[in-house]
Design a protein around this nucleic acid. Structure first.
Lengths: 370, 370
DNA sequence: TTGTACGCGTTATCAA
DNA sequence: TTGATAACGCGTACAA
């Protein structure tokens, strides 16, 4: 069975080649190899060829970790923490981040906090120890000591999608308050007086802000928010569906439901569908829907639906760009900024179903505020 | 504006503290600090306390890169390449991978290949240079030199979801062929003779296999596959929608559509919906649907729908577990294995709409084959 | 143009 | 129990 000295597999490296291996193989000094590798200016063509041949022969690759040890060198690593990748929204954000960082020749070390601040703290500590040049975080909320500059050794931090009180860093967020306010106002204008709110935990930045918008619209219209119609704390489709089911079972059910993020809206829709089937009535005709964030197959919802949209990928891109500016390092004392992306509202009504073609316009998202 | 020597910010480190800084601060040797940090056995309580105090005072964190430089030490990094994070399917896979690796105290360096083998090669080269201990890749297909053992310096590689010819490594894939075959057979049994196929590019492993199953079912039933109903090459919802729209515009449109992955099915559904609205007829009543992979809001599809399902997160978990086995390093010459996860088929018919509650059973997925 | 010496932060080894 | 030394892979500074 044992077949020692299998010559046919000779190329399989038992050990990773180092710069010295290459140097030996090429009959030059390690320094010459290093020079060639960094596009060296002061190397003879002969040497260069010898080195290049050996590099290929050994399949040599520089050890980035060792490189980043040298003073002045950067690791090329950026740490990214999101709360929950099962939400396609954050997958989009991550794609946007990756797009920009990839162009900037940076790699992403990635972790999911699952909305747990402690997990978030562990990830950040680890990332800092790995010499990541910067961090992009969707903060879970809660304690924030681990986000303070001392804790992260001054590694630049950018918040995406959410911010955290008491941590003054660059951030890209969404105009949650106005988006929620406008779409709620729309429902109120249509005459709805029993609007349910299904959303994130109270501790979640966006959940808080979207609720604030929801409240503001009510206040402006002089309509009270009905506490029994407010369900906050659902982070996934399943719990959102349960919450919505309870709402629909009330003696006086809501006439409209605002889903404060896409998971909550999808859950609510599932509940509506199930309840419709169970009761043999079309509840979609009786419950007006509004969603913050888009989701697949919106158009299949057989009732009136408004969606507050923004470009999640663009949000990711912008966060990465903010980070890169900090990494360039000019004006390190530049005051932090928060970029708030605008939202737009798209409404599809059942009565318009016949309308063919003409896709909703894609809009670029950009806006700055101090 | 410039306010030099801001004492209130004194704690903000201008430079990252090293083990020597801690040693100096504690009045001990760096070696003692190192010992304390690694839960050192042979340290006096006094020393330990001194060191711990200094560590906290300076906010010291070990430099993982420098650590991994030492022989025998591992980087704790695993490189993961997926083709497209915009597909929630892969986000799920990534979550599963992260779950297991996180438990094993490994971090994920992440990249998207966007189905481009060259981008994949760049990512892998970079990951190897960063001393990742292992790689988990959803291969884009195409050339595979960059996946050969020499190119990756013998770094263990595991394929997820797809495999690549000529690269003999551990893999976790789905029983694509049988899943597609069974669901196609179901449609054929129902009497369908014009079944459309909308799927991935021919070069994509799963697309290829699912098409194979599609063909096999036809062959077994003695029904010819109609080339004009086969559209292969759509990777996103938009292109899938276009392909489906063309199919529906045929003089003799298909009576059933098989979407070979969730993006293709969602696109086809959008096309059906749009065409229904445009023509004022319910095409869902005339076109039977079948999908490989689930998607949100399946139940809203107003027609008969079969879904071939498997647990994407479990697939990710399993891939990570296979990698960890290789990283343990016992029996490095152990033959590679491919784990093929079984699928199950769930069918919802319009006529059953009344059926309340009783969620479809979640099934654990496990099966091994050589 | 090429090579030598040294140091980056860490820890295994050995000596005290 | 504690500390000095050396080495991991690489690249800057300087010498040849």
């Amino acid at each position: 069975m044992a077949e020692p000295g299998n010559e046919e597999r000779a190329k399989e490296p038992r050990t990773v080649p180092t710069i010295s291996d290459v140097a030996r193989h090429a009959g030059v000094s390690p320094m010459t190899v290093s020079r060639v590798l960094s596009g060296g200016q002061h190397v003879s063509a002969t040497m260069r060829r010898k080195v290049e041949t050996s590099v290929r022969a050994l399949g040599y690759r520089r050890n980035e970790n060792a490189r980043s040890l040298r003073p002045g060198h950067r690791s090329g690593l950026v740490g990214v923490v999101v709360t929950n990748l099962a939400n396609p929204y954050y997958a989009e954000v991550l794609e946007g981040i990756g797009e920009i960082l990839s162009e900037a020749n940076r790699r992403v070390v990635f972790g999911t906090s699952h909305e747990d601040p402690e997990e978030e703290a562990r990830l950040i500590a680890d990332f800092v120890g790995r010499q990541t040049e910067g961090l992009i975080v969707v903060p879970a909320g809660g304690p924030s000591e681990h986000l303070r500059p001392e804790q992260r050794h001054g590694v630049p931090l950018v918040f995406a999608s959410r911010r955290q009180d008491g941590v003054d860093v660059d951030a890209v967020i969404v105009d949650d308050v106005r988006g929620a306010e406008r779409v709620t106002a729309l429902l109120l204008e249509e005459g709805h007086r029993r609007i349910a709110f299904v959303g994130n935990a109270v501790s979640v930045f966006t959940g808080q802000r979207r609720y604030e918008g929801f409240e503001r619209a009510h206040a402006a219209a002089g309509v009270p928010v009905l506490p029994e119609l407010v369900r906050r704390g659902q982070q996934d489709i399943h719990s959102a569906e349960t919450a919505a089911r309870e709402l629909l079972a009330l003696d006086e059910p809501p006439t409209a439901i605002f889903g404060a993020n896409n998971r909550n809206m999808v859950g609510a829709i599932k509940a509506l569908h199930a309840a419709s089937a169970a009761r043999g009535t079309d509840l979609f005709a009786r419950v007006r829907l509004a969603s913050f964030d888009t989701f697949d197959l919106e158009e299949l919802v057989p009732g009136d639906l408004s969606v507050v949209t923004h470009d999640a990928r663009e949000l990711g891109r912008t966060a990465a760009e903010l980070l890169l500016v900090r990494l360039q390092g000019k004006r390190p004392d530049r005051p932090t900024r928060t970029i708030e992306l605008p939202t737009s509202i798209r409404t599809r009504r059942r009565s318009e179903e016949r309308l063919p073609g003409t896709e909703p316009a894609q809009e670029p998202a950009q806006a700055a505020s101090p």
